[in-house]
Write a protein that binds this DNA or RNA. Structure first.
Length: 267
DNA sequence: AAGAAAGTCAACCGCAGGGAG
DNA sequence: CCTCCCTGCGGTTGACTTTCT
């Protein structure tokens, strides 16, 4: 297509960032804000590709990043979200404040994947491995799901809505894209849908202290601090905030367009 | 103690898609 | 409608670290 290269590769640094480069980038973004990554390197005096600057900022320098280990709850939430949306790391990261898609992707590939495999769970399909693959068509038994037998299982199809530790439910218009992507990289069964029986007609709702419950189902057991609002995943699925989506019209009062969390924002 | 193997994670690459002209 | 620019995403790589033998 004749796409121009993202940068003059001959004149850009590659590899690990130096402290000085970090400082320059931070200083520039503090002064001018994010955006216009293509021109940022020149403006900031960095010999880096704009993409590289963006990545460095997003994955490492952003002030709202939470470094450190993932908790068990994080693990479970990641697994459940992955069961729902597959390798949509940015989407999953959106539910984990302070975590980046890259970080979650790495964590998945290095920790969770192995953890699930060791428990006989296919990390891509979230179903029992091999011998289990044939039986996968009938769906998971709750006792084997995601390797958390005694805990709330990965959502199953027949469930109209699910509740996960962070009170995540999918919005009606927020159906994850068909599983034509996200499963191509690592083996696993690509023929059959990962969760053919998974009811994606769900809602994503997140407990927000200031938001009223959206639906009876979502508010089945609201605590005083766990009132719910609807998080619209349409943003991540291609619908922009200016566009209409059914979730917004359904309950504007409890509507919240899902974007990567802002600094200090917590769901 | 040294080398090998395995694990971790920051960074790069290529592509898709939205938006502007 | 078409082309190009720009951004963001997901997969992959490779350097570095840790654990094992």
């Amino acid at each position: 297509m004749g796409r121009s290269p993202c940068c003059e590769k001959a004149h850009t640094n590659k590899g690990a960032w130096t402290k000085e480069e970090d400082q320059r980038l931070i200083a520039y973004i503090k002064a001018h804000g994010e955006g216009c990554w293509r021109s940022l390197p020149n403006a900031a005096g960095l010999l880096r590709c704009g993409k590289s600057c963006r990545l460095r900022w997003m994955n490492y320098l952003r002030p709202d990043l939470k470094r450190g280990n993932f908790t068990d709850d994080d693990d479970k939430l990641i697994i459940k979200l992955h069961a729902l949306v597959g390798n949509k790391w940015s989407l999953i990261a959106g539910q984990l404040p302070g975590r980046t898609d890259n970080e979650i992707k790495n964590y998945w590939n290095t920790h969770i994947k192995r953890k699930l495999l060791s428990r006989g769970i296919d990390p891509q399909t979230h179903r029992p491995l091999s011998s289990g693959n044939a039986a996968a068509g009938s769906g998971l038994t709750t006792s084997s799901t995601a390797g958390f037998p005694s805990e709330s299982p990965v959502p199953r199809l027949e469930r109209p809505a699910i509740t996960v530790p962070a009170n995540v439910l999918f919005a009606p218009a927020a159906r994850p894209a068909p599983s034509d992507d996200g499963y191509s990289s690592s083996g696993g069964s690509t023929d059959a849908p990962r969760c053919p029986d998974l009811n994606l007609d769900l809602e994503l709702s997140v407990g927000l202290p200031c938001s009223p419950p959206k639906t009876p189902a979502a508010a089945s057991t609201p605590t005083s601090q766990q009132q719910r609002t609807t998080i619209c995943l349409c943003y991540h699925l291609g619908v922009r905030s200016g566009e209409t989506c059914s979730c917004k019209t359904a309950s504007p009062a409890a509507f919240r367009f899902l974007r990567p969390l802002e600094e200090g924002q917590y769901i």
